[in-house]
């Protein structure tokens, strides 16, 4: 494939990807021959019942894991051929993760949590701080950046996590059940942030099993038993209610 074709290829190019976990003598087929493309600036929801392989797919897309078989090219790079450090570098520079459990460092301030990817990227301290402050401001947490996670509400913690995902200006933000641990009102506020980020040009992939949440996306991919059971655009994505994070 030459450079011109590279440019034409979508950001995420997945062909017939499978993932099999071996647990003792038992094999778990978490993903069975998934094929899909996701382009820059898409807003995609990945839906499906529990155990259908959503997280597995997301981990592969985010280069946390590699496929057992099949092809995955991210921005033209064959991820299957990369070693651990190269995968880490892609996660560091190109991917922003948001987890259901927030996964913040409990002893660190919001600011330090957001700086973390930049620390591993070797960004100098002053610039790091500057960028982390901007990311926190973008998610509406400018006032709270010196607070530790246990001094923040669930919604605010998830905002810190989103700021951390944003701070390295990634190609794509991957959120695995980002509202799963929040009440529906707070969840709605989180979805509003994703909506804003999408409007600013970010690519967003949200894993969820809630129809309400998926309704915000512009495209919904459905997984069932490790296979892609549906992939449809959303006619009129739902708009998040405009109010401020209060909880």
């Amino acid at each position: 494939m030459n450079d011109a074709e590279h440019d034409l290829e979508p950001m995420i190019h997945i062909v017939n990807v499978s993932k099999t976990y071996v647990m003792g003598i038992e094999e778990v087929h978490a993903l069975r021959g998934a094929t899909l493309d996701i382009s820059r600036n898409e807003y995609v929801a990945i839906m499906g019942p529990s155990g259908s392989g959503k997280s597995t797919l997301m981990n592969i897309i985010g280069c946390l894991d590699t496929p057992t078989s099949g092809l995955y090219r991210f921005e033209g790079i064959n991820v299957g051929e990369l070693d651990d450090d190269a995968l880490a570098a892609i996660r560091n520079k190109k991917i922003g993760f948001v987890f259901q459990m927030f996964n913040l460092l409990p002893r660190s301030t919001a600011l330090h949590n957001v700086e973390l990817p930049l620390i591993y990227a070797g960004v100098p301290a002053a610039e790091r701080r500057n960028r982390a402050e901007r990311a926190l401001t973008a998610v509406g947490l400018a006032e709270r950046m010196h607070h530790k996670p246990n001094e923040l509400s669930g919604g605010q913690r998830q905002c810190v996590a989103i700021a951390r995902a944003l701070v390295n200006n990634p190609s794509v933000i991957l959120a695995d059940e980002p509202t799963g641990n929040l009440d529906s009102k707070t969840g709605e506020e989180i979805m509003r942030i994703f909506e804003d980020l999408h409007e600013q040009g970010h690519s967003i992939i949200v894993v969820t099993h809630e129809e309400d949440i998926a309704a915000h996306a512009h495209r919904v991919i459905r997984l069932f038993d490790g296979e892609i059971a549906g992939d449809v655009p959303v006619e009129r994505p739902r708009r998040a209610l405009r109010h401020h994070v209060t909880a």
Partner: peptide, 8 residues
Amino acid sequence: TRKAVGAR
């Protein structure tokens, strides 16, 4: 978490 954000 550290690995997810890019720790080698």
